[in-house]
Nucleic acid binder design. Structure first.
Length: 503
RNA sequence: GUCUUGUUAGCUCAGCUGGUAGAGCACGUCACUUUUAAUGAUGUGGCCGAUGGUUCGAAUCCAUCACAGGACACCA
């Protein structure tokens, strides 16, 4: 480590600084303003006659991003979290020899410094800081990436996110937006009277969704636990317990493939609302989006890639209807197993054998409809076979009171009136067990403890889950989930690491 | 998991049909007190992702592997 020539050079400079009495890792910061505040407070300097006010004095800190030395004067661009500032450093305004022997020789791009001085506007019209005191706070011994192109290699950007954040201001912006989305989401539901709760991340049975879990082991108890694939069943137990509106924002884990929209750990919000139905969820979802757009200052005609998503146009359509009106599948080809299979054959599409009617309708939807849903669309009335936790429709027992929300061709939310009939829930689980036995390894697990909870009576409830990562992707116009996760999952670079981890 | 593209200096990238490696930025040295990716001069910097093969000779051709990007499959 640190055998690179440039790193060695910089380590040498850090030593020289120390010898000269300047701690290269000082924590003696006297900063009294941020760059953003400095620029705001001194915006009046430009209107002054001599374009300076030597009576004002500020101390700002930041990382050197650009350094232009011109003999006895230098321009340095420093950046803190709030912004970028040009500071003007001259030999004659610093202690004897400091400029020549310390600043010019041992200070370079990447170092974190603190400077004091007065505001002035340069000949080219840039509000800057005229430096009269200069402190090195932190010496960077590794050089930063190239100042103009920065770091673009995706592998470096994901593995060394800190470098990405140093070099790319828009990346910082994306993660600030992500943080705001989560904060606004929390505030939105709290303001509606929802209670934020925390339920287990390690489950004895991985339930609440159809997905493969990660397994871990509890040594003291000598038992395996599953990292949760969804918090659903625990949140519903809380509704049984008498809480009437709860939500949880946290991580879920699914042991499946990784791609532009899937990371093994991802963040969701799930909320459950007693004495409500999925119809109420449609309304609160529209309100939620309105709230987000308002507080994030986003246009309701939201650009996403080469699409424009119209958030003034929420659409609601039953799944079966969407197959025909949006997917272009003839209506008579959607109603029975045989007709669907025959239609798929004409389209040269093969699907897994032994699918039931509901599953086949789900296939048709995935194949012909999903990617066409650009404006926010609530797809309702899902077949009961693919909705093991949703309440049946009173009018039609083959379908459930459920919707999924699609935006820009992608699923953003899943919601339904909750199944609260314990006998029905038990038989749905049994149906899932049959599916599992006949080869569907993603069928829902049996959870008798949950059925027992329902047996004490769960008030009629509606519940919804929203994928926060995909939502943030949509709102920040990012097209890979890795670009909205600070530290996305990556394979280890060295084989040895895999061996260690498996031991 | 399959297909496909990539991996060359700290970073961004050239390197043709094989002949022992090149630029810009950064860094060193020199000049320069209002620059904006400052400028001019000059210099240092490389196990060409790894391992095998073909060849007199491989960054370049072939194979395998690793990692990454993209697409597909899987995945509500």
């Amino acid at each position: 480590m640190f055998d690179n020539k440039f790193v060695q050079q910089r380590i040498e400079k850090a030593k020289l600084l120390k010898v000269a009495g300047f701690n290269p890792y000082s924590n003696n910061s006297k900063r009294n303003t941020t760059i953003e505040k400095y620029l705001n407070v001194n915006s009046d300097i430009a209107d002054m006659e001599d374009k300076r006010d030597e009576k004002r004095h500020y101390i700002v800190s930041g990382r050197i991003k650009l350094l232009r030395v011109m003999g006895k004067a230098s321009f340095v661009k420093i950046e803190d979290e709030s912004g970028m500032l040009q500071v003007y450093v001259t030999r004659d305004n610093l202690p004897e020899d400091f400029y020549n022997t310390i600043f010019k020789k041992n200070i370079e791009v990447g170092d974190i410094i603190e400077v004091g001085g007065f505001p002035f506007v340069t000949g080219k019209g840039e509000l800057s800081l005229h430096v009269d005191s200069f402190t090195i706070l932190t010496k960077a011994i590794s050089p930063l990436p190239e100042k103009f192109h920065g770091v673009t290699d995706k592998e470096i950007r994901y593995r060394k996110r800190y470098l990405d954040l140093i070099m790319n201001a828009d990346v910082r912006k994306t993660f600030q937006t992500r943080s705001k989305v989560i904060s606004l989401t929390r505030r939105f539901f709290e303001d509606k009277g929802f209670l934020e709760v925390e339920t287990p991340m390690m489950h004895p049975i991985a339930g609440g969704a159809n997905a493969k879990p990660f397994v871990t082991h509890h040594n003291a108890l000598g038992i395996d636990r599953f990292l949760r694939i969804a918090p659903e069943l625990y949140l519903k137990r809380l509704i049984v317990g008498g809480f009437e509106a709860v939500f949880e924002i946290n991580r879920c884990f699914r042991n499946e493939g990784m791609d532009a929209t899937h990371n093994p750990e991802f963040t969701s919000i799930e909320f459950y609302w007693a004495y409500k139905t999925y119809k109420d969820l449609i309304e609160i979802t529209k309100e939620y989006f309105q709230y987000l757009f308002e507080h994030l200052n986003l246009p309701t005609q939201l650009p996403y890639g080469d699409m424009v998503v119209n958030f003034d146009n929420f659409i609601e359509i039953p799944l079966i209807e969407s197959l025909t009106t949006i997917g272009g599948v003839p209506a008579e080809s959607c109603k029975t197993k045989e007709s669907i299979l025959a239609y798929l054959k004409t389209q040269n599409i093969t699907v897994k054998p032994n699918l039931n009617l509901g599953q086949l309708q789900g296939e048709l939807f995935d194949l012909f409809v999903e990617e066409k849903l650009i404006d926010p669309t609530f797809i309702t009335e899902y077949p009961v076979e693919i909705s093991p936790l949703a309440r049946r429709s009173d009018e039609n027992p083959a379908i459930t009171e459920r919707f999924e929300l699609f935006i820009a061709g992608r699923e953003i939310a899943n919601a339904f009136s909750e199944l609260n009939d314990p006998i029905d829930q038990l038989s749905r689980f049994e149906g899932q067990m049959e599916a599992k036995d006949s080869g569907d390894d993603e069928a829902h697990e049996m959870d008798r403890d949950f059925v027992e909870a329902l047996s004490y009576g769960m008030a009629p409830t509606a519940g919804q889950g929203i994928g926060i990562d995909r939502l943030v992707m949509l709102l920040t116009n990012e097209h890979s989930i890795r670009d909205v996760l600070l530290f996305p999952a990556m394979k280890p670079i060295h084989k040895e690491e895999i061996v260690e981890e498996s031991e």
